[in-house]
Simulated assay, not measured.
Amino acid sequence: MPVRVVLADDQPLIRAGLVMVIADIPDIEVVGEAGNGAEAVQLVRDLKPDVVVMDIRMPGMDGIEATRMITKEDGAPHVIVLTTFDDDDNVYNSLRAGASGFLVKDMALDDIVAAVRVVADGDALIAPKVTRRLIEEFADRPQRGAAQPPKELERITDRELEALTLIGRGMSNTEIAETMVISGATVKAYVTRLLAKLDARDRVHLVIIAYEAGLVSPGP
């Protein structure tokens, strides 16, 4: 069955461009379009999509609040937020709200389609260079100190801790495998165990945990 997608963006041209591209793709189907966060929340409840592509700045309910409402429900779809580099603060808050990744609006439409597939498969999409920029911007903010490293961190092995640290640095599975001198399958196994042990929704959440636990520090 095709991946069912809801598009939420207050710019009709953005939605139209994505719909035009997706129309020729057999494994992805746009099942609904929303012009604001409230409409997106209602469409998700009505249509039960697999993925929501969510703009941040929309009239009325914004994408952050809509993402928070959508992801807290059982059987929630994965949410990808749309952003520009000028929206870093909002992106970070969106990830904390439960988004599975984010895209930059000037990306090629084909890349956005590829991201939908990645997230639909249960992974998270987070560009390493943008990950570093976000964390460098926010890791030292006061609210970071309020978050305590999860107690479950004590239960992971040394190698899992190493993998978590590399995930926090924004490395891909291939890069982690090369750094740890292990196979890609082993990296996937580590990621799966980390998700379970740390009760993390996806890879983005693991990145946040790594920084909040102090495993990775801001910097190059």
Rank of each mutant, 00 (worst) to 15 (best):
Pro2Phe: 01
Val3Asn: 02
Leu7Cys: 06
Leu7Val: 06
Ala8Gln: 07
Ala8Asp: 07
Gln11Thr: 10
Pro12Gln: 12
Arg15Lys: 14
Ala16Met: 12
Gly17Ile: 11
Val19Met: 10
Val19Asn: 04
Met20Arg: 13
Val21Ser: 03
Ala23Leu: 03
Asp24Gln: 08
Ile28Glu: 00
Glu29Ala: 10
Glu29Thr: 06
Glu33Arg: 08
Glu33Cys: 07
Glu33Gly: 03
Ala34His: 05
Gly35Met: 06
Asn36His: 07
Gly37Ser: 09
Gly37Arg: 08
Ala40Pro: 02
Arg45Phe: 01
Leu47Asp: 03
Lys48Ala: 13
Asp50Gly: 04
Met54Pro: 10
Arg57Gly: 02
Arg57His: 09
Arg57Asn: 10
Pro59Cys: 03
Pro59Ser: 03
Gly60Arg: 01
Gly63Arg: 06
Glu65Ala: 13
Ala66Lys: 08
Thr71Lys: 14
Thr71Cys: 13
Glu73Thr: 11
His78Ser: 14
Val79Gln: 08
Val79Ser: 08
Val81Trp: 01
Leu82His: 10
Thr83Leu: 05
Phe85Trp: 12
Asp88Lys: 12
Asp88Trp: 06
Asp89Gln: 13
Val91Tyr: 11
Tyr92Gln: 11
Arg96Leu: 15
Ser100Lys: 07
Lys105Ser: 13
Asp111Tyr: 04
Ile112Cys: 05
Val116Tyr: 00
Arg117Val: 01
Gly122Ile: 02
Ala124Leu: 05
Leu125Pro: 01
Ile126Pro: 00
Ile126Tyr: 12
Ala127Cys: 06
Lys129Gly: 02
Thr131Pro: 02
Ile135Trp: 11
Ile135Glu: 14
Glu136His: 09
Glu136Arg: 08
Glu137Pro: 02
Ala139Asn: 09
Gly145Trp: 07
Ala147Ile: 15
Gln148Met: 15
Lys151Phe: 12
Lys151Met: 14
Lys151Thr: 15
Glu152Pro: 08
Leu153Asp: 14
Arg159Gly: 01
Arg159Ser: 07
Glu160Met: 09
Leu161Val: 04
Ala163Lys: 02
Leu164Ala: 09
Leu166Cys: 07
Leu166Gly: 06
Gly170Ala: 12
Met171Ser: 04
Glu175Tyr: 01
Glu175Met: 04
Ala177Glu: 01
Val181Tyr: 02
Val181Gly: 01
Gly184Pro: 00
Ala185Arg: 00
Thr186Gly: 00
Thr186Ile: 00
Thr186Arg: 00
Val187Phe: 00
Val187Gly: 00
Ala189Cys: 00
Val191Ala: 03
Thr192Glu: 05
Leu195Ile: 09
Ala196Tyr: 09
Lys197Gly: 04
Leu198Met: 13
Leu198Ile: 14
Asp199Ala: 15
Ala200Arg: 10
Arg201Ile: 10
Val204Ile: 10
Val207Ser: 09
Ile209Ser: 08
Gly214Pro: 12
Leu215Thr: 11
Leu215Lys: 14
Val216Leu: 13
Ser217Val: 08
Pro218Leu: 08
Pro220Arg: 05
